[in-house]
Design a protein around this nucleic acid. Sequence first.
DNA 1: CTGAAAGCGCTTACAG
DNA 2: CTGAAAGCGCTTACAG
Lengths: 348, 348
Amino acid sequence: MESAEQVQQPARSRRITAAMVAARAGVSTATVSLVANGKTAGRVSEDNISRVRDAISELGYVVDGIGSSLAKGVSSIVILVAPDISNPFFAKVIAGVRESLGSQYQLLLSVTEAGEFPEADDVRRLMSLRPAGLLVDAPNAGFLEDLASPSPLVLLDAPGLAGYAPSVNLDVASGARELAAHLASAGHREVAYVDSVTGTETFALRREAFLDEATARGISVGTGRIISTTIDVGAAASAFADAWPGWQREGVTAVVCGTDTHAYGVLQEARVAGVRIPEELAVAGFDDLPYSATSNPGLTSVHLPATPLGLRAGEQLRRLMEGKPLEQNEVTLESSLVVRGSTAAAER
Amino acid sequence: MESAEQVQQPARSRRITAAMVAARAGVSTATVSLVANGKTAGRVSEDNISRVRDAISELGYVVDGIGSSLAKGVSSIVILVAPDISNPFFAKVIAGVRESLGSQYQLLLSVTEAGEFPEADDVRRLMSLRPAGLLVDAPNAGFLEDLASPSPLVLLDAPGLAGYAPSVNLDVASGARELAAHLASAGHREVAYVDSVTGTETFALRREAFLDEATARGISVGTGRIISTTIDVGAAASAFADAWPGWQREGVTAVVCGTDTHAYGVLQEARVAGVRIPEELAVAGFDDLPYSATSNPGLTSVHLPATPLGLRAGEQLRRLMEGKPLEQNEVTLESSLVVRGSTAAAER
DNA sequence: CTGAAAGCGCTTACAG
DNA sequence: CTGAAAGCGCTTACAG
């Protein structure tokens, strides 16, 4: 069954190695490596470069990522760790990261349960892939302690954690304050808050900035008025269902949510319970997801610049991976309030 | 500066290797490998097992993924390729996959532009990581041709493509037919369709099944009535804005969308344009995303079982990776129509 | 400009 | 039950 025409055979199931390319081009594997990695400048003759290139394309050779990583001590993988992939906000962050990272790095997402970070064990296994770099979105301090990454690392949306690693943050606080001011000027005095249950710093910051400004403006948010749920429409809906009767007795006229997703849950349950939005209850969130323009009614939300967040983080990481110094250790991007129908009531 | 107490030193920045563990436990690296991989049965003495285990935990040793992969010829990575990560539907699929895959495999998501599959080059680089297995969601035939994966491969939501690889599919056609029947019985006769622009089979199937049943029930969907856009609220909104005046003249009273995301765009633009939903125009989608219960009005949608999809696909892949035979090459899961306010009009 | 060789960290026949 | 050794595929000083 062996063919006499070895040379004409297309690449078969066997993996093509640098040695095969070298044999075909009549050079050493060292030369193949140099050509395949574009490190030929002043090191490989034009003649050999084209021989090798031909052999590479004829055989369909691709540098083996595993062998290469082992030799180099590092892979070309950039791992993006995030607690909430389902959030549409996140898709935009990813788009930004991809754009700035370019094609020489392979971006892979670490996938966990919604709202959870990988456990210490998962982290170790991830690190054993020797990633070229790590991007961690909305982390908490505990996770970063576990991480102790030897790889270049950039944090996204990690307020107060720039001590752990270079960060690109969102100025969620100013948006939160704008929101408090907006509600105050619309006449709300008794307000509740639906927080995210993950102990993530960005959510603490959103909440605290809102509460500070709200208090300063004469809005009352009692202890029993702060509840938290996972970032999930259904979970937020049922938490709100439980809390609403009490809040209603206390005269609550507005609910602020840590994310738009939580707010959708509140809107959903409010419809079920026959609570008119915004006449009886104003609702607002954070993120300004695309759906917030189509919800019923449109959802007032603190807009956060997702794509720029990914873009800047990718740029910073790239610099780090290339051994270049960072101009700024912490970059902060603006947020702003988008007012829609869900908070329009009290002014009518 | 060298300490006399070598033994007490905690693991330092240097990577801990099997050789270090072996030295500490007084065994060979072969024995360390056996213990670390749980392959000790009848091959390592109890005594050595516990020595090695102690040394592993004292040093904090983790098997190097790169070295291990190179020696084994395969990594522990399972790559999930999907064209639309931003879709909340997808988060549930992932949850299912994780559950069935267990912790011995590392699930990583391949990240691309929304609606795009990795290019041939990206695919090659992915494959050069020597993944233990591949999961591909909603692929098109072209991508599978490019892939030609030597790794175990399972397709998700890939109707008609089971010839390429074992598949777990959704019976979107029956849901589509239910939807057509629902609209017909509500009196709609002139209907338009907003398709997804990706040439993905599942979208073709949704559309064709709907059109067949619709036609059979006396609904007209002329050629100019089928438009397509990316899976994006804004894109769908503006495509609808362009098409609506013409459709309106032709007496269109219902729009069916390939995904709920498209439908949100239609709802959004309809509000801007002052088109009353469902009185003037009924709208429906596919996926039954969580937001469909909170949109304005609630969105009628074909519910697709996302978590079971991921679960079954993970199970099938796992069997393949473990060299076990599959009981069924193609698994199909049911879909069903959920009727909400967006199509309630014509019956009033 | 070029290639032989060492080395990356591990796993797996193999011989004992 | 155990260890020496080969080998996975590549990259990188090194010597020429």
